[in-house]
Amino acid sequence: MNDSGTTMAKETMQAIGDKSKNSESSEVKMFGLLAEFETPGAILSAAKKVNEAGYKWWDCCVPFPVHGLDKAMGVRPTILPWIVLGAGITGAILGALLQWYTNAATLELWSGPITVTGYAFLVSGKPFASIPTWIPVMFELTILLAAISCVVFMFVLNKLPQFYHPCFNVKRFARVTDDRFFIVIEARDPNFYQEKTAEMLTSLGATAVEEVPA
């Protein structure tokens, strides 16, 4: 952290302080506070403190996953693996059913314009239910369903795509995908008091603290 950074942070602080004194109503329009850090080490120790201070509606935005940061923030393990496991099992069962129905059964499901019926037929003396030959397709469908659900639910659980986010309005936030590390504390957090929170963020080593308009 350099000197100019600190001075800049102080100036921003003052600006925020002035605003909050001025009007209560402007608070409604505020999304929260954005604090900038320069190194992974700095954000890691800061995140620990913010978590300890009892904030709930806050986040760290970083250009790459900082090792141990999720633990420091108290992020709970995701349920994603269970979803993937379920999808995988579904895929395997689906694969078995598909092959049994199409090649080993004579069950008619629908006789509309297109007949959907099982069609058991012999090939090269193999049994109708040739289980050794089912393995590859069952396996591939296991992987296919598991992988698709893995990606889809990763995004769903992350509430992505979300093309608009208040942070995008802050100019310096563009460096979040480059080389800067940010802590965002949202105004709706019960522990959020603009001045106190900003003060805390500066004391944690933020090089800049800025208001995020809603």
Partner: peptide
């Protein structure tokens, strides 16, 4: 980019995925 903003909560699931 789907509105990716580098949220560590996102990264957490992302890494798992």
């Amino acid at each position: 980019a789907l509105g990716w903003r580098g949220s560590m909560r996102h990264w957490h699931r992302y890494e798992r995925a």
